[in-house]
């Protein structure tokens, strides 16, 4: 594992990054800047996320966590920077990654059943005219079972609780049978049972050698859920294994005065 690095206050780049670590990484970002108008939302990010591990992207509100993920996927334009997946440019690697968007990003009154949404994960393989066969249906059912939603396949998606909607999105990503899973705040506003169900699925993925990267906002669970952390506040602040990169010092550098000192102490204590 590379040494963790903490950016100096004057804004030095975090140096994670040599060609070798980029080749081993599940996701590797170099010089990424995203700007809405003339105010950068993400500035000069270099990052490597390890393969077969669970990584968190952590930072305060408005720090560019989701924007960074969207820029990686090409949903918002990159002003500069390159992205590679398993050492190859991301454009050719789409089939090997699956994205789980924020629940609020879609209209849940859309005419689709739970099963329809999971089958959308298979569209890239089906192409324009491929028929949905028994094998595809079985795969969709299996993915629903993995997120504990086997009995909900025929329900209209608007009739689900928030947690159930999040599980459906996860099942759709599972149906893609990808190598790298990118999740945007998968635990935001879900119930405790859903959070447990999701984290179990993600840990299973890691155990199967898949790579997971999640935008995460709950500092209290970073240690117990994740192996690797990337702290960002528009600029990258620190990255590395949770044990060394997720400290009261790096958190203070990320959140500044926005995080109460007591909260930081608690998290630091939890580290021991």
């Amino acid at each position: 594992m590379p040494e963790i690095a903490l950016a100096a206050r004057d804004g030095h780049r975090v140096p994670p990054a040599d060609a070798d670590s980029a080749a081993r990484a599940a996701l590797s970002i170099r010089g990424l800047t995203v700007s809405y108008g003339e105010k950068p939302a993400v500035f000069s990010v270099d990052a490597d996320f390890p393969a077969a591990a669970m990584s968190a992207i952590v930072g305060p509100n408005g720090a560019g966590k989701s924007t960074m993920l969207k820029a990686v996927l090409g949903m918002v334009p990159r002003l500069s920077g390159t992205v590679s997946v398993f050492g190859a440019p991301i454009e050719g690697m789409r089939r090997r990654l699956a994205y789980v968007p924020q629940r609020a990003s879609v209209d849940w009154d859309f005419p689709a059943t739970v099963r329809d949404v999971v089958l959308m994960g298979l569209y890239p393989q089906l192409g324009l005219i491929g028929r949905i066969g028994g094998a595809h249906s079985a795969r969709a059912e299996a993915c629903l079972a993995r997120v504990g939603m086997a009995d909900f396949g025929h329900r209209q998606i608007g009739q689900l609780s928030g947690g159930q909607q999040q599980r459906v999105f996860l099942a759709r990503a599972l149906a893609q049978e990808a190598e790298l899973y990118l999740l945007d705040e998968p635990f935001a506003g879900v119930d405790a049972a859903t959070e447990r169900a999701i984290i179990e699925v993600l840990k299973d993925l890691r155990a199967a050698g898949k790579s997971v990267i999640a935008v995460h906002h709950d500092l209290a669970t970073v240690r117990s859920y994740f192996d690797h952390v990337f702290l960002i506040n528009v600029r990258p602040v620190a990255q590395g294994p949770v044990a060394t990169a997720f400290t009261s010092e790096t958190l203070h550098a990320t959140y500044g005065g926005r995080l109460a000192a007591t909260h930081l102490d608690e998290l630091a204590l939890a580290a021991i």
């Binding site: 879609v106 759709r172 893609q176």
Partner: peptide
Amino acid sequence: LRRPMTLVAFDPGYAASSG
């Protein structure tokens, strides 16, 4: 075009992520 158009109508972000 029914599949790509359905995907884009329901979840454009996800559609973009799948290429």
